[in-house]
Amino acid sequence: MRPFDYRRMADLQPVDQPGDRLIAGGTNLLDLMKLDVEAPRRLLDISRAGQDRITEHEGGLRIGALVTNADCAADPRIRADYPLLAKAILAGASPQLRNKATTGGNLCQRTRCQYFMATDTRCNKRQPGSGCDALQGVNRNHAILGTSEACIATYPGDMAVALTALDATVEVLGQGGTRLIPVAEFHRLPGDDPARDNVLRDDEVITGVTLPEPVAGRQIYRKIRDRSSYAFALVSVGAVIKLREDRIARVALAFGGLAHKPWRDPQTEAILTGQPPSPALFDQAADALLAKAKGRGGNDFKIALARRALAAVLTEATEE
């Protein structure tokens, strides 16, 4: 490994020097450092810097950035009012990792693209301008929506998919003060600058995530994967669905495993809203969701799988 400096921080402050990296649970960063994908000059350890509580907030909840995934998923208020979030978190990683991983860190989880993690291959995210070996390579678990010729990596996490469906907001502290970013706008599409996973600026730090007032309806997290635990999603769906008089009164859908960010498609939701549920309607919604989907060989199957995942979730959510 490369030598680096380490400092434990008493407060949650943005980084102030190039080469500094914040570390909390380290469940992603340490792996990437071992692989030489990340090579920080200095680690600023914020794991004891507070922000580790879940508090009432404007009718909803505020989750401190350093609340662990395990604590968040176990919180009675989360389990009662935002079960989608608890389910999504528990669908990810392993208990040991969830004990360490934090809310803010998990939002910043980097892609699992095997080329990104291999410094002997070409990757525009890791080394801008070098090319993308995944385009024609092993790309079974790569993105089908919102990709570019520069990058087809996915955002791999589960928690952010749930937060996106729940209309959560990321609270960010920078030199100029605090700003609020809807989770759906926190991650970005790769475009021609895949090096940036999200809109967080270099001098900003996530301080928390706020959840709006709970909404009525069924909450479902469905994660489709090759094995039943400890595998990243091929496709995942976070859904909040409210039925009224046999019609879909309200629906929020977010998808994991399909894109460089948790994917939310207003048109898909609009097609479903106000309609009586039926397989034909679900198909129509899938048509809208996947209209621009593009497979790259290994991941072609995700188009069919996403359609069926959506059907499964909508069927489950609208059953008697």
């Binding site: 079974r140 090759d226 199957f301 069919a304 799988l305 069926r308």
Partner: peptide, 10 residues
């Protein structure tokens, strides 16, 4: 026999 191989034929 991963899901990708089954999904299109179910």
């Amino acid at each position: 026999m991963t899901p990708d191989k089954l999904v299109g034929r179910l």
